[in-house]
Write a protein that binds this DNA or RNA. Structure first.
Lengths: 218, 218
DNA sequence: TGTACATCAGTGAACGCGCGTTCACTGATGTAC
DNA sequence: TGTACATCAGTGAACGCGCGTTCACTGATGTAC
């Protein structure tokens, strides 16, 4: 690792760039601390002197931003895989939320980075709402409304709230893993299930029996 | 502020100590950045040289820990005031959650600090579960079970999950205030209400009518 | 009431550290003839 | 195929900075006589 690096061929700039990015991610995940990810530390991990990093990134901000983008994309892909089957929308919504929580727990530092706000506000708003993961969430909520499980309303608002719910259980389990969770998945599922069931009650005089059955399902 | 400080009388050590603590809190709230709270910056805010802070705190860790304790205590007091009336337990639970969210939003940096884990795990576990705010939450859940609104179960597990829910909406509204929340209180209340209503459905064959009424109440 | 003195709250200068970044350089790589 | 040369990826040394912390000190405060 620390040994002197073989000089790259002329056209192979992108290789080192990719190595720098992945070392930065690794460092972030291992140390669990953004402050520990210094230009020097990244250089050492890659096996390269600190200044040579500036051949590939204008400055540290640009590098960190690139790391965030990569993590965001990964999360997007992981969630895209979790949504595509033929089950009823409420079940898919629950699976989607659980996948979100699991991804966050599996990559706690990356999750924290991805949740960090580093863009300008307007840009961040666009990027968040147009983000694949969020668009799919809204579509699932819309589907629940279309099938009559939820009373039709503003799917954007309910999506934000559902996101907040999943974010809450994910981030609390990440930051306080020593709490008596018993089974983290069970706790997360019960919270998400209850909240979704509760949303199915809004605007109704009588609870649909299928919601009662669902919240007590397997 | 920056001008030379009048020397304190012999017995007035605690005064400067308190001033240091409150300046540290203020600095934290204003800058929104733990890294900006340096010994030098605190000294300047108080109007005292950096080394003199060491007369009152052994080192920076001790100082930050003291700030956390103070914030924790404040939050505890704010929540204690929110729980004491005669309404049904579900309403008090909702009020309690809303007060939690509002306190967090009103003191975002302090909230972040209070959520930070800086003690040893065992100590943190004890402190968290024995904390007044959490004890009151568990008691409220227990009350919901006693009155039959929720089916009797493990109040500790449900308390953790309720906490996660409130934490989620609070922290997302703090870190992404530019999202289209419309009204942050309305969003928070709808999420908390739905989750609590959902918990009332667990273990039942039929939804109690009062739960349906409650989730759609004012 | 007046004076000498001990205490100790607060100070200015300095320490070593790791940081992001710049700079003139080196020397392997690829190319032109 | 062989040689001179331009390119440019990566380097070592150094910069200025702010940090936490230490240290010998100063001088107002309070006390003992």
């Amino acid at each position: 690792m620390t040994s002197r690096r073989q000089r790259s061929a002329r056209g192979s700039g992108p290789d080192l760039r990719a190595e720098i990015l992945s070392s930065a991610r690794e460092l972030l995940a291992d140390t669990g601390d953004v402050a520990a990810v210094s230009i020097r530390a990244i250089g050492q991990a890659v096996g390269v002197s600190a200044p040579s990093i500036y051949r590939h990134f204008a400055d540290k901000d640009v590098l960190i931003e690139a790391v965030c983008e990569q993590v965001f994309t990964d999360m997007d892909h992981a969630l895209a895989d979790a949504v595509g089957d033929e089950r009823p929308p409420l079940d898919r919504l629950l699976s989607y939320g659980m996948e979100y929580v699991r991804f966050a727990r599996a990559h706690p530092e990356h999750y924290r980075i991805a949740m960090m706000q580093i863009h300008a506000e307007a840009q961040a708003l666009d990027q968040t709402l147009a983000n694949g993961a969020f668009v799919r969430l809204t579509a699932l909520i819309q589907e629940c409304m279309d099938t009559g499980l939820m009373v039709a309303g503003d799917p954007l608002a309910q999506s934000l709230e559902a996101w907040a719910c999943a974010h809450g259980i994910a981030s609390l389990q990440i930051s306080k893993p020593w709490l008596p969770w018993q089974d983290q998945d069970v706790a997360a599922r019960r919270l998400l299930r209850s909240a979704l069931a509760g949303y199915c009650l809004i605007g109704r005089d009588v609870a649909p029996p299928e919601v009662i059955a669902w919240v007590n399902g397997d």
